[in-house]
Amino acid sequence: MTVIAAADGSALGNPGPAGWGWYVDADTWASGGWPHGTNNMGELTAVLDLLQQTADSDADLLVYCDSTYVINSITKWMPGWKRKGWRKGDGKPVQNVEIMKALDAALQGRRVRFEWVKGHAGHELNEQADRLANAAALAFSTGGLPDPGPGFGAARRPDAHAGYAPTPKPAEPDDLFSTLDEPEPTDEEQVIELERSLLTDEVRGDPAAVAALLHPEWAEIGRSGRLWSREEMLDAIGPTGVATSLDVVSVSRVNTDAILLVWRAISDERNTLRSSLWLRDRGRWRQRFHQGTDES
């Protein structure tokens, strides 16, 4: 017997109110999250909770994920990280390391297979898991708690509405939870950080993460003058392997729910002057239009 499930995560603003969810069928699902977290934390925690709740099952487990970051972390990178004391090849600490360690423990002795599916493409289980993760993030954004769901039979944990919450490490500057007492970023600061995230290979290599940042009616006029649709961009985007920094030229509030960001992308290959229009869509900032022109 094989249990077939989908797992997904969501973060409004990334980071921001975050949720996770996994789905087997209408009678077997779960969700949770945090007031502040990242999309990757949600994706990983959805898989972790599924593993923990099926720990006493003798069945094999097939997990559909739309995050290559999650699949590669578990199936490719984790053994090497573990051998190196949970550090990456460049010596830097592994991100989300406490969740990674918990996943490593939960996978011991298990027969688990992961398959990638394209997000927002009509895959029934993935769509349900995405709905649960988004609903959980939205619940936290309004000061509530998500429906934890029925879980996997008797294995339902009493605290599952909150998911897996790593213990804060205040000495680590990149520890997300150490910033909880700091002032909330402004809308302009959020938009700049979201734009900056689209330059990273971690986000560009995860179609679901990119899709979450692009408005449904997104369009772009590229450096060559080509007009790109959202679907074309999601099919073509991927890691570049080129470090690119963002230099803000101006940030203009068009109206309450619209911000125009003019910025310069700087890399060893070229400098490109860019402009991006960001709209607040159902509580989330999403890029609506983008244009770039190479500088001489």
Rank of each mutant, 00 (worst) to 15 (best):
V262T: 12
W228F: 01
G13Q: 10
I259N: 02
G37R: 05
Q95A: 14
S229P: 05
E220G: 10
A265Q: 14
A258K: 01
V24C: 07
A212R: 10
F289M: 07
A265E: 15
E172V: 14
V254P: 02
I266L: 11
I259F: 00
Q52L: 11
V97A: 09
T2P: 08
V3L: 15
R196A: 06
R284Y: 10
I259C: 02
A236P: 09
S197K: 15
V97R: 09
W218C: 11
S10D: 05
W263S: 12
R110F: 00
S275R: 11
E43M: 05
G119V: 06
D281H: 12
A265S: 15
G9T: 07
S57C: 08
L246F: 01
I266Q: 09
S178M: 08
L180R: 15
Y23G: 05
P148I: 05
D90Q: 01
L44D: 00
T2G: 04
I99S: 01
V203G: 03
R131V: 04
W116G: 04
E295N: 07
T142K: 11
C65S: 15
L279C: 14
G143W: 09
L138A: 15
T240K: 12
A154T: 07
P239Y: 14
I192Y: 01
G89S: 13
D56Q: 04
D201E: 11
F289K: 04
G33L: 00
A165T: 13
D147Y: 11
D56H: 01
P15W: 14
L227H: 06
K88W: 15
D181C: 07
L234C: 08
G238T: 12
L132C: 07
K82N: 08
A211W: 09
P173E: 13
E269Q: 13
D25E: 09
D181N: 12
T200M: 04
D66F: 05
